[in-house]
Structures are given as C-alpha cells and as structure tokens.
Design a protein around this nucleic acid. Structure first.
Lengths: 205, 205
DNA sequence: TTGTTAGTTAAACAGTGTTTAATAATTTAA
DNA sequence: TTAAATTATTAAACACTGTTTAACTAACAA
C-alpha cells in the first residue's frame, strides 16, 4: 500500500468516526454522544479515537463547524435583491431557520455550548475576537442597503441585525426543544415572528 | 431531641445541600454540579445525598422551581396599569430580563434542559400538558387588554405573546452566554429589542 | 438494658473521557 | 526476502461521574 492509499485509509476511518458520531447525535443529542458508543458501533477499541482526533471535543468541534458551514451556505444561497433588500433579508432568515431546524442537535451545540464552554470561545479567538462572523457581516450589509434604499429608517445596522438574530435564535431554540409542535403551528409562529420584526424595524420613531 | 427538632434538623441539612449546590452552580454552572462536590464541601459522604433527595435531578429540579418562582414573583410585582397595558407589558418583560440575568445559570437550566430533557417535560406533565404557564397566562391577558384599549390592532394574543417571549428569551440567552458585554451595550440591546418588538405589534397590517 | 429507628458511610457497580505501554500489522530499507 | 522502522490497534488502568447495597453508628423508646 503506497503513501497515498495510506492517507486515504486514514481519512476513511476519520470520516467513519464522524459519520457514526453524526448519527448518534441525531438520535441522542450531543450530550448522548460518547467515545465508547462510537467505537462499539465501529467494532473498535475506545482508544482508537485518539489516533484520529485530539479528544472528544475535536469531534464535536468538527461537526459544529460543519453546521456553521451548512448554515452559511444556506444564507449565501439567497440571491441578491437590489430593489427589495427587505425581501432578501427575510429570505435569508427563512433559509437560516430552515437549515437550523434540519440539524437541530448540531444547532443547539453550535449556539449553546452544549458540551463545555470551550468551543465557542476558541472558535471566536481563532477568527479574531471581535470580528463579525460572516453571517453577521451579511446581515449588516443587507440592512445598510435597506436603509439606503429607504426600506427602513436610519438605524445602527449591527444593533438591528443583532436583535433580529437573537430573536430568531430564540424562536428556533424553542421550536427545537418543544418537539411536539405541528408544522402548521411552526409556520404560524414563523410568520408572526417576521411580521412583528419587520414591521418593527420599518417604523420611524 | 424531640420529633420536631429532628424534622427541623432534617430540613436544615436539606437546605444546606441546596445552598451548597446553589453556590457551585453559580460558579461552575449546572453542568459543573456534582454530588461529590456538594458532599466534600459539607464533609459528608456522597451517599448522604440520597437520604434527602431522590437523586441529583431532584436537587436541580428544586433549584429550577425556585428560579421559576423568582421570575414569576418578579413579573407579578408589576402593578396593573389599566390605561396603558403596553407600558405595563414592557415593565413585565423588563423585570423578566432583570431577574433572569440575576440567576443566569438557573435560567439556562430552566429553559434549556441543561441536565437532561427530563426536567421540563415532567414539570409540564405535572401541570397538565397543554395548560398555559402562569407567566404565559399573564402575558396573554395583558395583550388582550392592550387590544381592548386600542394599544395594538387585533391579533391572536397567545401567538403574539409567544413571539415576544421567544424573542426575549433569545436575547437573554445571548446575553448570558456572551459574558463579556458591557452594561451599556446590554442596555442598548434591550432598548432596541423592545423598540422593535413593541413597534412591531402596534403596526396595523 | 434492650430494641428500634434514623443517620451515615465504605465499598462497589456501571458509566464517562483519557493516557500509557504493550502488541499486532504494515511499510520501508537493506 | 529479510530486517528494521513505522504505524495501527488495543488492553488495562486512572480519575472522574451518579447511584445502590449492606453495614455500621448514634440516638431514642420501651
């Protein structure tokens, strides 16, 4: 077996670990993930993990970053709407919610430090503490365009973006935690959520 | 030692356990709470816990219920304002935020099932699954009064209450998790939060 | 004093993440 | 092909977790 084959095999096992971890998280949540659950499912010894990952946290971190990527891709897939930045903004958040609800356990881990407060901090530090996240940057740009186009009255775009974001975040977490909500009720909640928020930012105070 | 003294002594130890647990949670969060941490601080053996509580979950549940009580008291302390139900509503949420930020770790545990998804469900089941919580009942009544007084256009009070609540919940969790925010920034966020939400629900669509 | 009860604990069990040292497998070098 | 070196894998242990069992001690009542 040559060098390349070897590295490929390594990658395969690493990916298998991640795949098994993903399925466990989907079933039992991030809290339900354990090294031994992973290795039992793979017919390996627990110690094998530490050949492919620094520790359990690195596995979770990898999946969390995957989640960030998915959500970023979802919001970036919204095509620019020069004439109606407010419509665009709503589409961005609609996609955001949709994607978050598609990976509920990962989303919780991403946002709530579900396994230790380390993750988010290190992630932030790596990107430079107080720099805006790509998603937040998008939102701010969009809101600024909305102001320029006269969709909203003048305001601090970052402050407004943060409020819409935290509000939407709250709704999503509620929808995830309260599992037994009908899809009709979800739609009602999301609609009213946007109705209130978008009316709110359009009011001239 | 008489019977009453004996029961009193029992209560004292129970309360000491809770007190120690509270201080550990304040420092290390609900996740950082462990039976052995409690009993070491009290110079007892770990097994003692199970004479005063069914299990660790019951300790957390007790503190979580305490948190519910505090928050309910805080929102109930707002005096009824017949003429301006919207001002009253804002005061209710202001108090809610203030109290939640006073017990951040407990609030997280209350809302996010920080230690197993059991807590919230059993708590809900005990009160009858789909009955409104006391706080939610307050909000709905208030909003209905606001509609009657002409503060807001007609709407589903429960739906609107849920949206304001989830939005505020999202803001609070963000404020708790991102520990290093100045109090000025907190104030700015809370102000803009209410500005958007209250403008939003007053808009006639 | 005896018997009963309540309070308390040592020890163990099953589970967690992780490390160490030894072993098995495989690739490289001679 | 054989020997050396590297890599992959694991068994076993450590230090934690929550919890249970059986034993023990202390205090009370008869």
């Amino acid at each position: 077996m040559g060098r390349k084959r070897q590295l490929q095999k390594q990658e395969e096992i690493r990916n298998e670990i991640l795949e098994v971890a993903r399925s466990i998280i989907a079933k039992d949540g991030v809290r339900g993930l354990s090294i031994r659950k992973i290795t039992n499912a793979m017919d390996y010894s627990p110690a094998i993990i530490y050949h492919y990952f620094k520790d359990k946290g690195e596995i979770i971190e990898t999946l969390v970053n995957e989640g960030y990527g998915r959500i970023l891709a979802a919001v970036r897939s919204v095509k620019r709407n020069e004439d109606e930045p407010d419509t665009e903004l709503r589409e961005v958040f609609t996609n955001y919610i949709k994607q978050a609800l598609a990976i509920p356990e990962e989303y919780k881990a991403m946002m709530l430090n579900d396994e230790g407060a380390v993750l988010q901090k290190t992630a932030l530090l790596e990107r430079g503490i107080s720099r805006r996240s790509p998603t937040m940057q998008m939102l701010c740009d969009n809101i600024q365009r909305g102001i320029d186009k006269g969709c909203y009255p003048p305001c601090d775009p970052e402050l407004t973006a943060q409020i819409i974001w935290t509000a939407t975040f709250g709704l999503i977490i509620k929808l995830i935690i309260e599992k037994d909500i009908s899809s009709e009720q979800v739609e009602r909640l999301v609609d009213r959520h946007f109705e209130i928020l978008f009316s709110g930012i359009k009011v001239r105070s």
